[in-house]
Design a protein around this nucleic acid. Structure first.
Length: 1008
RNA sequence: GGGCUCAUAGCUCAGUUGGCAGAGCGCACCCCUGAUAAGGGUGAGGUCGCAGGUUCAAGUCCUGCUGGGCCCA
């Protein structure tokens, strides 16, 4: 052989000319370039045209596991969808699609929250001064138009995300049927006796003149004047020093609270005697002086003092929320202006006095110099007044976190108003309770239903339950091990709990499943501290609270009974809640049978329905969305059977909804149904910027979802979501979408390569049976890798661990297929005769890999999977989304050598040695290498095919050699090289066509 | 201020009951040019947020601190 021929490049030029056309090179119509921006909308149209959602509902036979009841929480119908929606909706779609492919029927109704302040606020702003003269009904029509507009916009964006849902018939909280269903839930609560009307300080938005729920507040820092004020003792022996950051609430001061166990001292202040907590004296009075006299807080209780500028005498009371962290240890108490104050007032029998009107100005019970003055302006006036009269000790600017109206961003105040409440402490009975169970409150019920941590029981009942469960499980296991098929222990267990009485039966509830687990503790903490639910709002855009008040001159409690509520519910179903604002009261009560309503207040009968005054309050929107389990799932017949332990299987929202939708769905549902609305609660974290800090719409670091669709496509966005750890914060950056795009291309290219090697292959006709002898073949190994990835991914899907599925799928494409298997089998695919058994066996394996992989990917990238599926089937009409996951059980029968793991592990070492040897010996092309390796310990190395192993190492020759204790790499450059396969092989020799070929290649070409 | 939660390689994250710090991406070097706006190989990299404690042994358990996030006050 001449030097010329030994030059590799000379070889190549010659080979190219001669044999390229004789190879079975990959060929496919599935393009490398995805062009998602154009092709995804086409997929959407195709699915819509074929009625994919409906088709899935109809194919009962394909849903062997029954129904999976998943309920969509309604986003607010305002604005464009943002990244949070994208994350939430995509995760939900993963659930819908994975459960569907796992064999469940998963009807999924998307919904929107349409009522509420944000929309009304925006509409009012747009209307400007015109709004003043408008009737509520007119404002409502504008709001409805606005909600409809955004439902349409968001619905389009969600479809563009390729989510599978009943978009033809979504639920809107403003629809008449929905409104009626909410009132029916409310009627149930009225029936339980937990709805009451009361005066109570609530967060009050002066800007919007409405009470706000906790969920409608945002906390920002605010500068206020804080004052230290001296309240003179009635006995003339000095004064009490109090501190407040809201001087405007001083006119409503009705008490001073101290902690009974704290120490208080009398101090001299410029000749005057003042009382402050000992621990705070130095800080407040700036003095090191010792107190002249000390008291326990309990000794001060009952002490009388004079209001500094109102002719009123009040007393010192005790309260255990008094702390020594700031202030003076003596707390100004105004029951009309604070929750703690209110509680104290209730206990001490104080008035819930609130001299502030709806618009934030003082009424005529206030001192004349404050009447008509806005509370924020009053701050200065009060401070001046105190200074003039000598009651002010000190005033300073103070920055503190203060609640603001979540939309208007204006500061809110605490103000006592008449509101409708749901009591969370009042006990009631429910039909579903175990017989004999004593009445339970909402808090007790909800804490019980969210279950307890079985690893960390708290109460005696919980300990008892765990012990009993463990005991019976042990016994049952023993019975099983004795060969018992129906252990007695199961039966005994049931009997045991029955005999333990209703309390324990009730406590035994398995409880709601929380994913991640800590959701339970989080919800528990929130439930334990939750106050009564204030249901009423003083706005127009919402569902009216169906209460009727007596007309002028008639005294009595409002009419709000289960029967009257059901009657209004029926009317709303027919006419919508607009009727409340236009129809006369007798029409609103068309379906009401007053004569038979034993709950109706007496005044109603003498007064007559026509004179009733419909109330102006509407519901907290959370009550509407919190009733969706009824308005959507029960009403549409989608809920779990009546005897199930929850209404639905799963709710899935951001972790903020522990306090929001989850909790506010749990309460109404427990009241109405006596069981929780959800069997499991899955939460995800929030999007934060790259630096881990909060993303803000105004901060400019938010990404526009429409731009993402345009720049990356939905499948890439979805692939990004599938790779996230969604338990906690999720970092977002444009760069991450680019990286997801890179990964997507890798997956796509792997699929393309699979498909392109199946050109001309017909699985039914050409598939190969595996024989026992094939157990050590690379195809047998690959087949079991397919089973492995299928099992892993389906288990991950089952546990909502999409990240794990994502990782397994990516590694399968990148490592198992691309780097190992496909690289190894390229030679036989290209060079073997097209219908050689070895090539057909590999193609059969590739086909199995393709069908399994594409189906597993379908929930994550529905467009790409569908595109690939149609290419694989060669049928534009087929649709992967109508199919379940690939059944891999038939592949499990295929024999496989147990030694593959050891061989694959050894391969890493072999590759390393080859790399080192190539460097050392100056061999560029691994095909110019042959390797000899020591036999692997405990492995029957001889059963492996040396060609398979050579291909797995990318070399021309492979042999096990017992005499070696390290890998030996041989330089084969002196051996002849096959001009077709480019391998160095001992069978290479001149052939009848004039070329130099190996036996295999000569045979493939029919040469001798 | 309180409840829940997070902090591991440049980036995104795994790390089961305490037992020799892992993956992917990116990067560097090399190969292939018959997956080609592809494909393959090898390699570099970390005081596991900080400070204490328990232990033969701590990324892992405990306490405190710092800095994020959600919810509340």
């Amino acid at each position: 052989m001449s030097d010329q021929q030994m030059d590799p490049r000379a070889d190549k030029t010659a080979d190219k000319k001669t044999y390229k056309k004789t190879l079975n090179l990959p060929k496919s119509a599935f393009p490398m370039k995805a062009n998602l921006v154009q092709n995804e909308p086409a997929s959407l149209k195709r699915w819509e045209k074929m009625g994919l959602y409906q088709k899935l509902r109809e194919q009962d036979h394909a849903n062997p596991r029954g129904r999976y009841v998943f309920h969509d929480g309604p986003p607010y119908a305002n604005g464009s969808i943002h990244l949070g929606h994208l994350l939430n909706k995509v995760l939900k779609d993963f659930v819908v699609r994975t459960k569907t492919m796992a064999g469940y029927d998963v009807p999924y109704v998307p919904g929107w929250d349409c009522h509420g302040l944000p929309i009304e606020h925006k509409v009012m702003q747009e209307l400007g001064d015109k709004a003043r003269d408008m009737q509520p009904i007119q404002v409502r029509r504008k709001c409805k138009t606005s909600a409809e507009k955004f439902v349409k916009l968001q619905s389009g964006q969600m479809k563009r995300l390729l989510t599978l849902a009943d978009y033809a018939d979504p639920y809107l909280t403003m629809n008449p049927g929905y409104e009626g269903a909410v009132l029916e839930v409310f009627a149930d609560l009225v029936e339980r006796g937990v709805v009451y009307r009361g005066l109570k300080p609530v967060h009050w938005s002066i800007e919007n003149q409405t009470a706000l729920a906790e969920a409608e507040l945002e906390y920002y820092d605010r500068d206020d004047t804080s004052v230290f004020v001296k309240f003179d003792r009635v006995d003339g022996r000095g004064s009490l020093m109090i501190w407040t950051t809201t001087p405007w609430t001083l006119p409503a001061n009705l008490a001073v609270a101290v902690h009974e166990r704290h120490d208080y001292g009398e101090y001299d202040l410029n000749g005057q005697t003042v009382i402050v907590a000992v621990e705070l004296a130095k800080k407040v009075l700036k003095t090191d002086a010792e107190p002249k006299k000390t008291y326990k807080g309990s000794e001060l209780v009952g002490l009388e003092y004079k209001h500094p500028f109102i002719d009123r005498v009040s007393k010192v009371v005790s309260a255990d929320y008094v702390t020594l962290e700031d202030g003076t240890g003596l707390v100004h108490t105004a029951p009309g202006h604070g929750v703690d104050d209110y509680q104290t007032g209730l206990r001490e029998g104080l008035d819930v006095y609130c001299p502030v009107r709806d618009d934030g100005t003082f009424d005529d019970t206030a001192p004349d110099w404050l009447q008509g003055i806005n509370v924020w302006k009053a701050n200065d006036l009060v401070v001046d007044k105190l200074r003039e009269s000598g009651h002010l000790f000190h005033a300073e600017q103070f920055t503190h976190s203060y609640p603001h109206d979540w939309r208007g961003k204006s500061p809110v105040i605490f103000r006592a108003t008449e509101q409708w409440f749901v009591s969370v402490c009042k006990e009631f009975k429910h039909d579903r309770d175990p017989e004999g169970l004593k009445s339970k409150s909402f808090i007790e019920r909800s804490l019980n239903e969210i279950g307890f941590d079985r690893d960390n029981p708290q109460t005696d009942a919980q300990h008892e339950i765990i012990e009993a469960e463990a005991r019976y499980q042990r016994e049952a296991q023993e019975e099983y091990s004795r060969g018992e098929t129906r252990p007695l222990a199961e039966k005994e267990k049931r009997q045991f709990f029955k005999e333990l009485g209703p309390e324990l039966q009730w406590t035994r509830a398995e409880g709601v499943r929380f994913i991640p687990k800590w959701g339970r503790n989080r919800m528990r903490g929130m439930l334990e501290s939750r106050p009564d639910w204030c249901l009423s709002r003083q706005r127009s855009w919402g569902l009216p609270i169906p209460a009727f008040y007596p007309p002028e001159g008639v005294e009595g409690e409002p009419l709000l009974t289960p029967a009257s509520t059901h009657a209004v519910a029926k009317l709303f179903r027919e006419k919508g809640s607009d009727a409340w604002f236009v129809a006369p009261p007798e029409e609103l009560l068309t379906h009401y049978d007053l004569a038979n309503d034993k709950d109706a207040p007496v005044w109603v009968k003498s007064c007559g329905l026509g004179k009733l005054v419909p109330g102006a309050d509407i519901f907290d929107v959370w009550f509407e969305s919190g009733s969706s389990w009824n308005a959507v799932m029960l009403q549409r017949g989608l809920a779990k059977p009546d005897d199930a332990s929850s209404v639905t299987d799963l709710y899935l929202e951001g972790s903020d909804q522990h306090r929001g939708w989850f909790q506010l769905s749990l309460l109404p549902c427990l009241g109405s149904q006596g069981k929780p609305p959800f069997g499991a609660v899955l939460t995800h974290g929030f999007m934060v910027a790259k630096d881990g800090r909060k993303m803000s719409k105004s901060g400019g670091n938010a990404l526009d979802v429409d731009v993402l669709f345009k720049d990356f496509g939905a499948d890439v966005c979805r692939w990004w979501v599938s790779g996230l750890n969604t338990d906690n914060d999720i970092k977002v950056d444009l760069e991450f979408f680019r990286l997801a795009g890179e990964e997507y291309r890798k997956v796509r290219n792997t699929i393309k390569f699979l498909l392109s090697n199946l050109d001309g292959f017909n699985f039914k006709k050409d598939k190969t049976r595996f024989e026992e002898d094939d157990a050590a073949s690379i195809d047998a190994w690959m087949t079991h890798e397919i089973i492995k990835v299928s099992d892993t991914v389906q288990a991950a899907y089952d546990g909502f661990q999409f990240r794990k599925a994502h990782e397994a799928l990516f590694n399968f494409c990148n490592e198992t297929l691309s780097a190992v298997y496909l690289t190894a089998v390229k030679d036989r695919l290209y060079c073997d005769a097209p219908d050689s058994p070895r090539r057909r066996r590999t193609q059969s394996t590739i086909y199995r890999a393709a069908t399994t992989l594409i189906r597993l990917l379908a929930p994550l990238m529905p467009h790409t999977a569908d595109e690939a599926w149609r290419a694989l089937m060669g049928d534009q009409e087929s649709c992967v989304h109508l199919l379940p996951f690939q059944d891999v059980d038939c592949m499990r029968q295929i024999p496989v050598s147990p030694n593959w793991q050891a061989v694959m592990q050894a391969r890493d070492l072999w590759l390393k040695s080859i790399e080192e040897a190539r460097q050392a010996q100056g061999i560029d092309n691994p095909l110019d290498c042959g390797v000899r390796v020591p036999t692997i310990k405990d492995v029957a190395c001889s059963s492996f095919d040396s060609t398979d192993l050579a291909d797995l190492c990318g070399v021309s020759r492979f042999a096990f050699d017992d005499s070696l204790d390290a890998v030996a790499v041989d330089d084969l450059r002196d051996e002849p090289r096959c001009e077709r396969s480019w391998k160095r092989d001992v069978t290479v020799k001149p052939r009848s066509d004039g070329g130099t070929l190996s036996d295999r290649d000569a045979k493939a070409l029919g040469l001798t």
